[in-house]
Write a protein that binds this DNA or RNA. Sequence first.
DNA 1: CGGGAAAAGCTTTTT
DNA 2: GCTTTTCCCG
Length: 712
Amino acid sequence: MILDSLNSAQQEAVSAPLGHQLILAGAGSGKTRVLTHRIAWLVQREQISPLQIMAVTFTNKAANEMRTRIEHLLRVPAKTMWIGTFHGLSHRFLRAHWQEANLPQTFQILDSDDQLRMVRRVIHSLNLDEDRYPPKEARWFINAQKEEGRDPHQVIPHDMASQTYLNVYQAYQAACQRAGVIDFTDLLFKTCKLLQSNANLRQHYQERFRCILVDEFQDTNTIQYMWLKLFAGEANAVMIVGDDDQSIYGWRGARIENIHRFSNDFPGAKTIRLEQNYRSTGTILKAANALIAKNTGRLGKNLWTDDKDGEPITVYSGFNETDEAFFIVNRIRELRQTDYRLRDIAILYRSNAQSRVLEEALMQFGIPYRVYGGLRYFDRAEIKDALAYLRMLANPSDDSAFERIINTPTRGIGDRTVTAIREHAREANATLWQALLQLSGKQFFAARAHQSLEAFVNLIQSMSDKTQTMTLDKQVEYVLRASGLIEHYRKEKGEKGLTRLENLEELINAAHQFIQEGTPDDMPPLAAFLAYAALESSDEQANEHDDCVQLMTLHSAKGLEFPVVFLAGCEEELFPHYLCMHDPKALEEERRLCYVGMTRAEKKLFMTYAELRRMHGKEAYHKPSRFLHELPPELITEVRFRTKVSPRPMPIANSYKPEAEGKFRIGQEVQHRIFGDGTVLSLEGDGEDMKVKVRFAKVGTKTLIGSYLNPK
DNA sequence: CGGGAAAAGCTTTTT
DNA sequence: GCTTTTCCCG
């Protein structure tokens, strides 16, 4: 029953005997299906209780999807099951064992932004020069150490700079401990530390989880690997699923070697390959296979499909990035006339900066689109302000929240006053809130500052009193009004302020919805909500009803699929990126990124590049990406003609001025009385006012009025 | 404290 | 070059 509708490799994976398994799952080979069916198999055939199973993913989205599918398969709520992200499960663990982990019960989670502020504060308190020791570098150092599982005393500094960063690391940990906050990496780090040091707990968890499944294993880093080993112990069965060819997060510490290490550390691990692809046409797969074959040290895997070969891959050479964008937009307009909806189409690119030109072209033709990977809801400044007030209520020691709201909205507490509080806090070895309480009793400050501070103390204390018995959504609403945040953003003029107000209103709804769904743990609702905001700031997916073209980076496209994919910017320097080109390892990661991009496509794949592109302010000619040369020529159709500047775009409000018709088009050879021969780069406006940007052979690039130019 | 000017980035990103 | 952040002064 469970095995119905699975192919033989999938069946083998799902019904494998209890033991260690390494599932090499190619793109589109039904990886999630295997994971969920495996869990169903364990429960139904191996008589393993759902409570003895742990399933780990990287994103909340993947975890939620898995949970939903399992509930569907098993027809029981999977709420009590340990399905979640490394961070989410660690959080659950630390909430249950806060005492053993030496944390306050109300501990709060710092996101990377809060973390940076905290690090900056520590750097100042050590009297270090921020320019010589940039907080971002320090944060990177701290996270890197924790990701390798090293406490401050385990770090061996190699030079003066790393000695300094080590001091920062030490002071930072102390400051976090004092404030009762932990950062993202700490979730994993402290979980590992606790399991290592506490044999009872370790034994308890190792006896509990008889089966552990890990998704996207190629993305695990060192601490995650340690984490897995600690939970798995010697006796439990571990199934990992991954694809070395889709490892694209090496730059942030993912260790592809973990897949190789697995077979050594987990004896008897059996490797099963899922190579049948259910997503793409034969042509797309053949091309992707040929590309990835250029990489070395692969575990080896060849995707195949029962599907037809389908159409060849279209490669388009644009004159510049505008021309490239117009080609894409024109093709989208054609596709729209056929069976494709806009939401079937994705434009993928290497870096976010590329989206602007594409957006402008889409806008010009009135094609709805959506850019992914922007600022997430819970990361918005106004939301973080509001959450900081809530955090103060949950845990007044939270220095990072304190710093954020002490003068937001502005209440006459300037930098000087805050510095005084910080200094006192350091001397008294206290948190900022404690320091403030001590100082305000002593008439320490000038009269005006003292008054403002007193008002602030009263505000927080009265908020704390008044919200005591309220439901979560009422608490949020009360805090928004009492803090003056609503008023503050109401004053902000323009559309921006309005959006912010809407976002704040939405926070009340979010809180309401949160309690409706029921808090998962035995935590107070406010604490649970704050953890949710920090840990599960859900990436907003496109509304089912929204029909728009999807724009995103190659990285964020991983795990998704689209009938039509445009892979833009396939040029040397951009893709592969110039920072990666001289490191063979990094170059292979770029190639994997290209592989990931290509294998997102189901039916049609377009790969485009621009001969001339404006990058970092300068215009530069780039060769077509080496990845294009690595594709078998017989699978490609090259489109050589330049896009004719197209029929009039739809007249829509706020649309950009349409490109001029008639006299000039992009790429055209032209002549000027003084400047000589040149090529048209871009057009703006029309009629007499038309401005034409031309690159002249002798004098470089100039923008001039069209009437001074003659077609050649 | 807010607005404008100067300066600093500038690959990819989840938790 | 363009956008975001920081700085400085009224």
